[in-house]
């Protein structure tokens, strides 16, 4: 029934989560559980790879919102990489690129982790 899954990977001290399938209100608890596990194990450098994520609904986006504050308070970050265009569009509509570090490739994300970069909010909107 569930067409969503999360796979765990490590790259040095960065926890990589590979998402597969469709993330919606029904499957969101799985991602939630995965993120909870990371936090329980004290891993706050989290990279979410969306290469195989086919769809995301607003409830799916909510999961990211739920944990970002705690992760950043603990000195970590949650970066998102390799989103498909249609998935990126959903992130983009809600303004997630302003709140999250969303990059094109995993390598870029790892680099940004290494340099401890965060997204820089634009100083002022276009008129």
């Amino acid at each position: 029934m569930s067409n969503f899954s999360v796979a765990f990977r490590r790259n040095d001290n960065i926890q990589i989560l590979d998402l597969y399938g469709e993330l919606d209100a029904h499957t969101a608890p799985e991602l939630e559980a995965a993120l909870q596990q990371c936090l329980r194990e004290g891993r706050y450098q989290i990279l979410v790879n969306g290469r195989n994520l086919d769809y995301i609904s607003s409830a799916g986006l909510g999961v990211f919102m739920a944990y970002i504050e705690e992760i950043r308070e603990k000195g970590g970050d949650l970066k998102i990489a390799e989103l498909k265009p249609n998935v990126y569009n959903v992130f983009d509509l809600l303004g997630f690129p302003l709140l999250f570090d969303i990059v094109n490739t995993e390598a870029e994300a790892l680099e940004r982790f290494a340099r401890q970069e965060r997204p820089v909010p634009p100083t002022s909107p276009n008129p």
Binding site: M65, L94, G95, F96, L98, L99, P121, P122, T123, S124, P125, N126
Partner: peptide, 19 residues
Amino acid sequence: LQGLGLGLDRSGLFLQTLE
């Protein structure tokens, strides 16, 4: 138009980015 969803941001970012 640029703009964050409501309830996502508690800092000034919302106002800054609203278009």
